[in-house]
Design a protein around this nucleic acid. Sequence first.
DNA 1: GGGTAGTACTACGTCCCGTAGAGAGGTGAG
DNA 2: CTCACCTCTCTACGGGACGTAGTACTACCC
Lengths: 118, 118
Amino acid sequence: MKGLGELERSIMDILWAENAPLTAREVGRMIEDRDLAPTTVMTVLDRLSRKGFLTRTRDGRAWRYQPAASRDAYVAELMLEALDMTGDRDAALTRFAQAVSGTEAEILRKALTELEEE
Amino acid sequence: MKGLGELERSIMDILWAENAPLTAREVGRMIEDRDLAPTTVMTVLDRLSRKGFLTRTRDGRAWRYQPAASRDAYVAELMLEALDMTGDRDAALTRFAQAVSGTEAEILRKALTELEEE
DNA sequence: GGGTAGTACTACGTCCCGTAGAGAGGTGAG
DNA sequence: CTCACCTCTCTACGGGACGTAGTACTACCC
């Protein structure tokens, strides 16, 4: 999986936060603070769908974009990808477990317990 | 933390696998298959230490390079970084827990249990 | 039918990275 | 002593990704 650039991520964040598919114009309005040309937004949306992060469907003449996967799935995939980089997955996992804070260790523990029960 | 390129990672892999600090020449000999100019190896080693991935110490005229952190620590940090990207860490963690395979879930569970006991 | 919105295509600057040459300065062999 | 050689530092170039945007074409509304 390829990574995301700065602007690409901002745009993904907007789309991840929204439930409905948005048009380029709508996305552009939600980035107001950066004052980008409309074509800039369109270019990035186009690249993102080319990379598989977005899917798009027609709405009249316009395209509506929406994430191909949830942010959580993306983050989890990034984490797994990092994990694949090591020769010793166990050591890395152990290290990771030690690094997450208490509350999060709790979450992890719970998720794992639920897994076990199924 | 910045990411690593292809060659950069190969070189880190060599140094992570080795226990002793290596000189540029030694590293170069261990990448034999790619037939790189010695200066190429030196440049990459230099960039890696500039980025904080390696530390170096003098050995006569030459430098000896060694990883600043273990590969596991690096991988764990990458994973945490991915995790930081999401607004909903709990959801991502849960998703991650579901994605790791059985054996690895076991490892994680064990690491977390040990944490709890301390 | 002219303004507006939307698209596709093209482009340019920048930064990172793979790759490496040039030049400087020490070192060992003869 | 001198030359070949090693290693370092500095500089550079080409490709790819990304931020940014212009241009040209088409379709719709009033």
